[in-house]
Design a protein around this nucleic acid. Structure first.
Lengths: 310, 310
DNA sequence: TTACCGTGTGGAACGCGTTTCATAGCAAGT
DNA sequence: ACTTGCTATGAAACGCGTTCCACACGGTAA
C-alpha cells in the first residue's frame, strides 16, 4: 500500500508538499497540486488515519459507555450522540459496560491510552469522582446531574418532572402508590430523584418500591408482588414497556391493574394510552456530544415533559 | 505525558525492554521487570494506543454500519456484535448511514484509511459489489444472503421462515393477505424474500403491499389504507411494533383489525399475543463479528423461528 | 538598490510503540 | 576446551502523516 513518501517520489515533490496538498493548507502551486493529485489517483492512495492520528495526537473518536442497548434511554441517547458526532466528523465507539465497574475503568484507561478523545457515560457503576479524575486524560461527560462535581453533564431534569407527576397524582386523589425503579437508590441518581420527589409531594416514603425493574418481563414479574398489596391505587413505573408488562401480569392473574404511569414515551405506552414522561433523550445525547467535542465543562439540563394525554 | 522512552531512561533500560515488559513477551529478567513496573506506576504511564496501532498496522476497531437505531433488527444485531467484540478486545464503532449511499462509501473509504480493521454492514444502500471490492482494504461483512458474491455474511434465513409462515397462513384458510415491508423490493433483499415466498405459497402476488413501513407510527398510518380493502383477512407485517400500530389504527377507526403477524419478537407483540418470527438477530450479530475479526469469507445462515403461541 | 514580504518547496524532526538484529553473558552438552 | 543454545538487553529502523524551519525566488515598497 502506497504511502505519502511514495506519492512524493513519483510526483517529484516532497512529502511535505503532498501533505499540504492533501490538507489544502496552501503554499502549493497549481502545477504541483495537479501532478500530485494525478499520482494519488493513479496509485489509489488515501492517507493512513492512524498515522495522522498519531502525529496530531487525537483520534476523532468519542467513546460512549452504555450498560446495554435494551432500553430506549440508551438507544435514544446513542442516536442523539451519533447524529451530532457524524455532523462533526467524529466516530462513535460503543462501549458496553453492563454496569460493571471494572469494565468502566477499562474504558477510562482507554481514554488515558488515547483510544478516544472523549468519553460519554450514559450511565455508570463507578463513582462520579472517578470520572472527574479521568478528565486529565480527555473530556468526560456524564448524563445525569453532576451536583457539585466539576464534570460536564447533559441530563434530564428528572426531579422537576417527577415532582410535577406526583403533584398531578396527588391532585387526582391517588393515595397508595407503588414505584418501580431500575436500580437501587444507592446506585442510581434517577432512583434517588424519584424517591426524593415522592417524599416531597406526599411527605412519606412510597408504600411499595420494586427495584431492578428494567424490562417488560421484569414488570410482568413484579406484578405478582404488587397484586398482593391491598388498596394500591397507582403504579408509577420507570418505563412504558415496564408498565405494559405490569398490566399484563395483572391481567394474567385475572386482576385489573391499578392506573399506571410509564416513562420514555414508547410505543407500548402509546398503545395503552398511558400517561408518560418524555425525557428527550435524543436531545440530551446531542448536547452530551457537544460537550465532549468541545471539552467544555458545563451542565446542560433538559426539561422533561409530562404527557398526560397521548 | 510520559512515553516509553521516559520509562526506559528512568528505569535504566531500553525502550525495547520496556515494550517486552508491557507485553509480557518474555526475555525480561525479574529485576528489570520490577524496576520498570515501578517506574510505570510512579509516572502513571500507559502506552499510547495510537502509536501501537500505527506500528502494528491495526486498530482493533470494527465499524458497524447501521441506517439508524430505531428498529430492533439493528439494536439487537449491534448488541450481538458488541458483546462478541468486547470478548475479543475489539471496539465497536457505530456508523450511521441513514441508507445514504454517499455516507456508506465514506465508511468504505475509512476502511481503506485504516480507521478500522473490518466493516460490518447491517443493511445498505450501495450494491453488494461495492462491498466485495472493498475487501482489499479489510474484512467486510454483510447481514444478508450474499448470493453468489464472494463476501462474508451472517444472516437470517428469511425465505425459509416466510415460506413456513405463509404455509401456516394458507393452512389456516386465510386468503386475502396484505403485507407491510420496510423498503421497496428493489432496495431490500428482505422485501424480495417476503414477496418471493408469498408467490411460492399462494401462486400470486399479494393483494396489498405497503412499503416504507418501519415504525409503530407507520403502521398506524397505513391502517387507514388497509381498512379500505374489502375482505382482507390477514396482515403479515414486518415487525411487532408495526403490527401493533396497525391494530391501533383500526381501533381508532372503530374497526376491528384482521388477524396479524408481527416479526422480531418484541414486547408489543407479546402483549397482544401476536404470532411472530424470531430472527435471532443477536446471534447473527455475534456471527458477523466473528467473520469480521477472523477475516474469513464465509456464509453463516441462521434459522429463524416461527412463534405461533407466545 | 536595498530591505522586506509572500509564495513555493524540501529536509528533518516529531509523535511513540514494536520489532528485527546483533551482541553478550552463561550454562549445559560432548 | 569448544560448540550449542538460551536468556537478557539495546541500537536502530519501521510505520506514516504533520509540522517547524530554512531557503530560494520573484515582486514590491522605500
Amino acid at each position: 500500500m502506497a504511502n505519502i513518501r511514495d506519492i512524493a517520489r513519483q510526483a517529484g515533490y516532497s512529502p511535505a508538499t503532498v501533505s499540504r496538498t492533501l490538507n489544502h493548507s496552501g503554499y502549493v502551486s497549481a502545477t504541483a497540486a495537479a501532478k500530485i493529485q494525478a499520482v494519488i489517483a493513479q496509485l489509489d492512495y488515501v492517507p493512513n488515519d492512524i498515522a495522522r492520528d498519531l502525529s496530531q495526537g487525537r483520534t476523532a473518536n468519542v467513546g460512549v459507555v452504555v450498560p446495554h442497548l435494551n432500553a430506549p434511554f440508551f438507544t435514544e441517547i446513542v442516536n442523539g450522540i451519533s447524529g451530532a458526532a457524524f455532523a462533526a466528523d467524529y466516530n462513535v465507539v460503543l462501549l458496553q459496560s453492563k454496569y460493571d465497574a471494572a469494565l468502566e475503568r477499562t474504558y477510562l484507561s482507554q481514554l488515558h491510552r488515547k483510544a478516544f478523545d472523549a468519553l460519554i457515560f450514559t450511565s455508570r457503576a463507578i463513582p462520579l469522582t472517578d470520572l472527574v479524575a479521568a478528565q486529565q486524560y480527555g473530556a468526560v461527560v456524564c448524563c445525569e446531574d453532576p451536583g457539585t462535581q466539576p464534570l460536564a453533564a447533559a441530563y434530564s431534569q428528572r426531579e422537576a418532572a417527577y415532582l410535577q407527576a406526583f403533584r398531578w397524582l396527588k391532585g387526582q386523589g391517588y393515595q397508595h402508590i407503588a414505584l418501580t425503579l431500575s436500580r437501587d437508590a444507592s446506585l442510581s441518581a434517577t432512583s434517588r430523584a424519584t424517591l426524593a420527589a415522592f417524599k416531597r409531594v406526599f411527605g412519606c416514603v412510597p408504600t411499595i418500591v420494586e427495584t431492578n425493574v428494567t424490562t417488560y418481563q421484569d414488570g410482568y414479574r413484579v406484578a405478582a408482588d404488587l397484586a398482593k398489596t391491598p388498596d394500591l391505587d397507582y403504579i408509577f413505573s420507570n418505563g412504558d414497556d415496564i408498565a405494559t408488562g405490569i398490566r399484563q401480569g395483572y391481567l394474567d392473574q385475572h386482576r385489573t391493574a391499578p392506573a399506571l404511569m410509564g416513562q420514555e414515551n414508547q410505543v407500548s405506552g402509546q398503545l395503552l394510552g398511558l400517561p408518560t414522561i418524555d425525557h428527550h433523550f435524543r436531545q440530551i445525547g446531542a448536547a452530551a456530544f457537544d460537550l465532549a467535542a468541545t471539552g467544555r465543562v458545563a451542565s446542560v439540563p433538559v426539561t422533561a415533559d409530562l404527557l398526560l394525554c397521548r
